[in-house]
Amino acid sequence: MKREEGDVVKPILKGRAHVFGDDINTDYIIAGKYTKTLDYKSLASHLFEDLDPEFTKKLLPGDFIVAGRNFGCGSSREQAPIAIKYAGIGAVLARSFSRIFFRNAINLGLPVFVCDTSNIRAEDPLEIDLKEQVVRNCRTKKTCVVEPLAPVMMDIINEGGLVPYLKKHKDFNLKK
C-alpha cells in the first residue's frame, strides 16, 4: 500500500486516526540521530520513536495522523514527512501546520489537511473525501470541512509531488 512518488492520490482516503497534541516538532517525528540515511524504510521504522517506541507496530497501511496546532514545527528536515509517508500513513490532519513541514509534505505527495481535529479520538475510522474537501468521522457520523489548498499546491499533489510536477512542467506555473 506504500505510495511511491508519482502515484496520484485517490479521491477518497480511508484509515484510522492516531491522535497527537499541539506543537509536535520534527525532532519528535524523527530524531536527528536517525536522519543520516537515504534508506527511507529504515527512517520510517523510527517514526515518533521518542514519543511512543511502539508507534510503528500499531500502524495499518493508510492510517492517518491527527494532530492539534503547529504540527511539524522545528527543523526543515524533510526526513520527517518522508518517515511519515514511508511508514504508510495516508494523510496528516491538523488544526494547523508549521509552514516548512506543510510544503515538504505536499512536495512529497503526502496529503496534509488543515481542519478542526478537536473531536477526533484515537482509533476513529475516518474518510477524507478530496473532491468534497471534507473529513467524515465514521464513529460520530460528523463531517468537517478542510481548508482548501492553494491551486499550486493542488497541482503539485495531483501530480504526485514536486518532482513529477517539475518533470512534466519544467517550471512553476501559477494559475492566476
Binding site: E78, P81, I100, R103, N104, N107, L162, L166
Partner: peptide
Amino acid sequence: GVGSTDMSGVLLT
C-alpha cells in the same frame, strides 16, 4: 529554510 524537495526545484529552476 525550505525542504530538500523544494531545494531540488530551486536547483533545477
